[in-house]
Design a protein around this nucleic acid. Sequence first.
DNA 1: CGGGTCTTTGATTAGGTTCAATAAGAGTGG
DNA 2: CCACTCTTATTGAACCTAATCAAAGACCCG
Lengths: 292, 292
Amino acid sequence: MLSTHMPEIRTDSSAALHSSSLEAGWQRQGKLWSNLKELCDVLRIPSAAIHTDEELLFQHVQFKTGQRIHTIGQPFDTLYIVHSGFLKTVLIDEFGNEQVLSFPMKGDLFGVDGIHTKRYASEAVALSNCDLILLPFKKLTALGRAHVEFEHAMYSVMSRELVREQAMVSMLGALSAEARVARFLVNLSERYAEMGYSSKLFNLRMTRHEIGSYLGLTLETVSRTLSAFNEIGLITVDQRSIGIKDAEALKTLRRLPPSSSRAKQVASKKARPAAPQSGEQPDSDWGEFATA
Amino acid sequence: MLSTHMPEIRTDSSAALHSSSLEAGWQRQGKLWSNLKELCDVLRIPSAAIHTDEELLFQHVQFKTGQRIHTIGQPFDTLYIVHSGFLKTVLIDEFGNEQVLSFPMKGDLFGVDGIHTKRYASEAVALSNCDLILLPFKKLTALGRAHVEFEHAMYSVMSRELVREQAMVSMLGALSAEARVARFLVNLSERYAEMGYSSKLFNLRMTRHEIGSYLGLTLETVSRTLSAFNEIGLITVDQRSIGIKDAEALKTLRRLPPSSSRAKQVASKKARPAAPQSGEQPDSDWGEFATA
DNA sequence: CGGGTCTTTGATTAGGTTCAATAAGAGTGG
DNA sequence: CCACTCTTATTGAACCTAATCAAAGACCCG
């Protein structure tokens, strides 16, 4: 996998991205510009308060399967919003191994990890042909100052990312292999539903290896677990094609309580008198854990 | 643990926090107000560009060991900056089990996860007496509009948090128990150094159980691993007291390469020709992984 | 068709959990 | 101040989950 078998790799994306006179070659697929409202809609941000007459435009860029959007250490200056397509973001360790961090898809923002050090901390690769909206960081901050709601929305999106990461940490730290795979499928299913695809039957865009890396498992374990779910009738599996048969069972599938839980449960109940914990966690996509 | 043994639990912090007439009781320890420059300094943000004559003040609040700063689901409106002391942030799963997400200490910002849903997604508990600076979210956004540098700095701090979480995910997904514990110790050591304490000899502020939860291990494994490091001479352990004997060895301690690495390594090298990966990741605290 | 990647499945191993028992501290109250 | 209790830490032994090693089949693309 990776992109070793891909013909052309754009390592110098920044060069091409900003030449506004030469992008004719990119026109073939996807649109070229979005206005602010469209951008907000994609990000699932309330665009009501935005002046719809605003005619600030955001450039799109297309990437083909296997192309790299940015690499680790590359100077940061723009964020990316997925308009269509599927990607992965990865860390590369000292042995050249990938660690998959996320699978951005429509409506997701990535590149945020570059803000801090001014260099991207991760690498983003297209898993399918992609249409991305460029959001130069300068433009973002300027927009934030112009539109209070937009500023708020950006903080909100970044916060959403953080919550998602927290859920990942929680999952990796506490759940069994089966539970992780089950959650992964449920999350994917819900994501597909949001995007208007079928939540019951879809194709995985990533390999078992990538899923394993994302979930902290080996590809064999992922494969075996999918097969096991298939046996039990929770799903159907045929290579990349997944059919969800019993979403509820998948959602509630968990590690058998670590036994030490029971005592704790009582203790914490007693000590947590007024926490409105039962309250909803509305709009939580990429589902968490404490709220399920 | 938890706070089951603590005498007084403040579940309604918001009520008390904002009554600016009654905080006399809190005055005993710690200061009460910081200006913008002090706030930036604590956050390790360049405060040079800030108007030092700015006389906007930020309230402090003190918490005692075991007290809860905020709970899951509680309405969000303020962020917290650690001025002194040690805390933990946790998620609570459906069985009442804690999942430790972070151990905020001096200079750390927490509460960010509340921005998205307007409710805190995690719970923060003081592991020692703490002095926290309150940063109302409203005030933050207003400041961002007034001072471009500050706005940038806030994005930067949030990005830093995200990178830290990514490093956690990476660690949980790919490292062995020994490697996790080793990294944990190294990170702590570096953090103590930054704060002006000894990096060679320090006390853990958290239990084995909390460390285990943070690292995705059981408390027994943590204890055993520390004992093993002690045997080998990498550290000395006596209950909460840790002495770092061989920081280098701890830093380089890793899982034996997963065997499949070697082939990949060649492949990725070939396909990644112009990545300025060797570039520095300056100022990365709470160390990552891909850059070590 | 052929070489590569990806996936599945089996056999075996090992790292980490679980269960259990003991010890060491810290706080409480007589 | 000491006994009592509760929490925390250490260590051992058995078990089990997931990793590792291995092999064969499926798929894809040139």
